[in-house]
């Protein structure tokens, strides 16, 4: 499971859904793997506003990543800007001209943490005791 997915996973038990404990769930005995997938800044920059950042910070910490406490401010790339971008042989979207250096760094970091970090084994539970 991707770390991104953890931001949309809650307890499956209906009676628990309204409880604040049901989200985010906490990782236990997580085994991680890095899985290379194409870099897509169009997806990432538009995904960012949809994330529950505090929950992501919590999940990341449990897996050994440190994210900034506040959600990074990034320009939302448009589909037309992306259409002008080239694609590398790895399937990465190359947007060098459209994104500043700092933003590009942030996007690459988000890509690595959200899209390429896979929890391959482990448990998720409502309390982190």
């Amino acid at each position: 499971m991707k770390l991104l997915t953890a931001n949309f996973i809650s307890c499956a038990v209906k009676a628990c859904k309204s409880s604040s404990l049901s989200f985010p769930l906490h990782f236990k005995d997580a085994e991680l793997a890095s899985k290379s997938v194409p870099y897509n800044p169009l997806l990432l920059s538009n995904l960012l506003p949809r994330l529950d950042w505090p929950a992501l910070v919590t999940s990341s910490k449990e897996l050994g990543f440190t994210l900034p406490d506040t959600k990074p401010e990034l320009p939302r790339l448009s589909a037309t800007a992306a259409a002008a971008a080239t694609t590398t042989s790895d399937g990465d979207m190359n947007m060098d001209s459209g994104v500043g250096e700092e933003d590009e760094k942030t996007l690459r970091m988000l890509h690595k943490v959200l899209m390429e970090t896979e929890v391959v084994e482990g448990k998720m539970s409502k309390n982190n005791l």
Partner: peptide, 22 residues
């Protein structure tokens, strides 16, 4: 689908956060 994610779940008890999907 390496860029997406997949889970085993039952439609009547889905492990997802309410009111969060587009």
């Amino acid at each position: 689908a390496p860029t997406q994610d997949v889970a085993t779940a039952d439609i009547l008890s889905q492990p997802h956060r309410p009111s969060s999907f587009d």
